[in-house]
Design a protein around this nucleic acid. Structure first.
Length: 287
DNA sequence: AACCAGGTTATAA
DNA sequence: TTATAACCTGGT
């Protein structure tokens, strides 16, 4: 995967295919990366402001160093996986072949569990611009301020920092009825009713069962959390788009989530989550 | 004004 | 177990 990595003073350069910033950041798995201009993104991960550029197959990391690259970014961007091989493996038929051809620069990020949990609770019955705004206000209100090049960025608030918040405290982020779900999540995580940061070590079904204890987390949101923050790549989150595209392209009829679930499992096994992302991106932009 | 947007919850068949 | 209505908010 890492064809060539070179390290300069403030810049790490990656030569690689199968990594496109736009596709990776805008395929719907994350909400806090912003495009400054074409091929230029700034995001905040943990307590790091990372600036990235892409020109052709060359991707540059700024405001970071070799240590963080090894300790954080390789893991976060899933850089040790061979996506060429992966795509080859799941693209046995022409539909997935078309989807992977269209979105071959997508990588599934390994994001923070708590941030992913809150983000996808907020995503329910909502639209992307508003999800991003709510998360922005949430971070600004409760997160820690970071400055970079004269701009302010905010870390994602930890569960501990949110201990004791009320619906009234959350009014100004305008998350609507989802506020009480956020509060339930804070409580259950802080009281270890859900051992969030250990779930990745559990079997997928067990981890899902734990997530479902939190109000506002149903099957779709749980699968997103498992897939985007815990490397549970067998999960195939079924939202309206995936349902539509799976019905239209594969079943050619209406079907139940249960049928779709089984289909994805049989078809792509432990790589169903990757297939889901390629299909989702393909469906949203091409259908 | 009515409807929709990355679903979930609460109720009822 | 599966089906349906209601749901904050902001945009069209």
């Amino acid at each position: 995967m890492l064809k060539e990595t070179s390290i300069h003073k403030n810049q790490i350069i990656l030569q690689t295919g199968y990594f496109d910033l736009k596709q990776t950041f805008e395929c719907g798995q994350c909400f806090r990366w912003n495009e400054v201009e074409q091929g230029h993104y700034i995001g905040l991960v943990k307590d790091k402001v990372l600036e990235m550029y892409q020109v052709g197959q060359e991707i540059s990391f700024y405001n970071t160093d070799e240590k963080d690259f090894k300790d954080i970014w390789v893991d976060y961007f899933d850089l040790n996986r061979n996506y060429e091989e992966l795509i080859e493996e799941i693209s046995k038929e022409k539909i997935m072949k078309a989807a992977t051809e269209y979105g071959k620069g997508i990588r599934i990020l390994c994001q923070d569990e708590w941030e992913t949990l809150i983000s996808f609770i907020i995503s329910a019955n909502n639209n992307i611009p508003r999800i991003k705004k709510i998360l922005e206000r949430f971070s600004k209100l409760f997160g820690q301020k970071m400055c970079y090049k004269g701009e302010e960025y905010y870390t994602f608030p930890t569960p501990e920092s949110l201990q004791g918040i009320t619906e009234k405290d959350l009014e100004e982020i305008k998350s609507g009825y989802r506020a009480k779900y956020i509060i339930d999540a804070v409580q259950k995580v802080n009281e270890s009713q859900v051992d969030l940061y250990n779930l990745k070590n559990l079997e997928t079904g067990e981890a899902r069962k734990e997530l479902l204890k939190i109000k506002g987390i149903g099957p779709k949101v749980a699968d997103c959390i498992l897939l985007f923050s815990m490397r549970k790549y067998s999960c195939y989150p079924i939202d309206v788009w995936i349902r539509k595209v799976t019905e239209k392209l594969y079943f050619k009829r209406e079907c139940t989530p249960k049928e779709i679930q089984k289909f994805a499992e049989d078809m792509w096994k432990d790589n169903a989550g990757f297939a889901q992302q390629y299909l989702f991106y393909y469906a949203r932009n091409q259908l």
